[in-house]
Amino acid sequence: MTTHARALLAASALLALAAPPAGAGEIAIEAQAGYFQMAASNSASALFGSSGGGTFGGAVRYTFWRGAFVSAGARTFSKEGERVFVTGVSGPVQKLGFPLSIRLTPIFATVGYRFRNGKTIVPYAAVGGSITSYKEESDVAGEAFDDDRSKAGFLGAAGVEVGRGTFRFGAEAGYSAVPDALGLGGISKVYGDDDLGGTYVIGKLIVAF
């Protein structure tokens, strides 16, 4: 770690500990980055070689009464692979070499509760709904095989926030479900995968006002 990085970390820690605790009316902005694991793991593994990957996004949180808060944000997740053919769940995956990419962008809104609001370490839990934009793009010798749709879903999350000042850190794990978004065709239909959601673990950098 460089001297500058150490100094920045120390300054952040001081700010986090010295600033006033979060209270009602607090607004916080979060930058989020972490790992997302698709629920449609069989389909994703066949197409992309794995069913998880990096995700990033951001959110705005407003704590309006004691520990109760509302939050809204968006994250994005993308994978690149190739088109395949399978006869069934147990059949071998036939890789066909045509490039394929997907992008998921869930926009979510949650309500939650911060259990030790105002303390240095604040656990919290939240539930909410989402609208997930799904884009699938593939080109087979000049012919597009694309899908573009949005689907409603729901999510639940739990996490912990560390710090009491302007700058804080957090970690969150959650599960999102976007039923009936897949399984309309393609390999997800063969495998019976219909959920575009999944589980995620993210780290947060929080700026509170």
């Binding site: 449609a40 994703a44 197409l47 699938e136």
Partner: peptide, 9 residues
């Protein structure tokens, strides 16, 4: 020949 995508057959 094109096979299958995730949601496009």
């Amino acid at each position: 020949l094109p096979g299958l995508g995730l949601n496009v057959g």
